[in-house]
Amino acid sequence: MRLQPLQRKRGARRVPVLLLIPAVFAIVFLVVPIIGLLQKVVWGDLFHDLTTPQARAAIALSLRCSLWATVLAVLFGVPLAWLLARVEFRGRAVVRALALLPLVLPPVVGGVALLSAFGRRGLIGEPLDAAFGIHFTFTATGVVLAETFVALPFVVITVEAALRAMDRRLEDAASTLGASRFTVLRRITFPAIAPALSGGVALAWARALGEFGATITFAGNIEGRTRTAPLAVYLLLDSQPQTAIALSLVMVAICIGVLTLLRGRWLVRQ
């Protein structure tokens, strides 16, 4: 009787070669570009490259805009996730699809769409400009808008999944015991979705930080105003490749940091 678990264990250890070979190829394919980037870094000059005025301006702007975008994505994304998870209404599937659209849309198309809506001659941009003189294009606000557009789905998708997966009887029990709606939200709902929310936030932030296509199309590429780190990498690649590589390294490091913090939490329910 003690043989059986032993056998199963041995069976589980044997990896089918047909799966192993492509899997190894996949690993190599994902890792080699990063190694390629690393061997281009001039380590001795790294500090100097990252402290050039252009690099510093790009990193500072990137951090500022991506954090704002993450805050906005949470402020608007969590209520939307709650609506999609808890309220049944006609067209919910359509709303959900629209909320996830920026996830699959080519970012440059997102930029063109934002321009058509919030540009100076856009649907909303034109009246805003005429009435208040507000414009989004070529401003850091425009960068935040573009980054929020692409980051929002990550918050919606993770929080909605968590809200659907949680045991609603806990909320019902709390209400029956006399807890107010706010108390239920604070003591029951929020703790239950917190791990998923933190995963969504981290992914949204990483996505906002890396935003390129929508930003350059909608907000332009002005040094210190809208030239975020990814835009600087692209612009500097032919004039100051060393700085471009150094900035790339910073972004790789940040993304690896985010993923390490998450430890796959947004995929694997703990």
Binding site: L115, G119, R121, N221, I222, G224, R227
Partner: peptide, 23 residues
């Protein structure tokens, strides 16, 4: 001044920043 210049990667992209964009 640098904060009034938006840089596009090619001549056509620069043209687009004026014709379609807000430059």
């Amino acid at each position: 001044s640098a904060d009034h210049i938006t840089r596009a990667d090619s001549a056509k992209a620069t043209l687009g920043a004026v014709t379609y964009g807000d430059a």
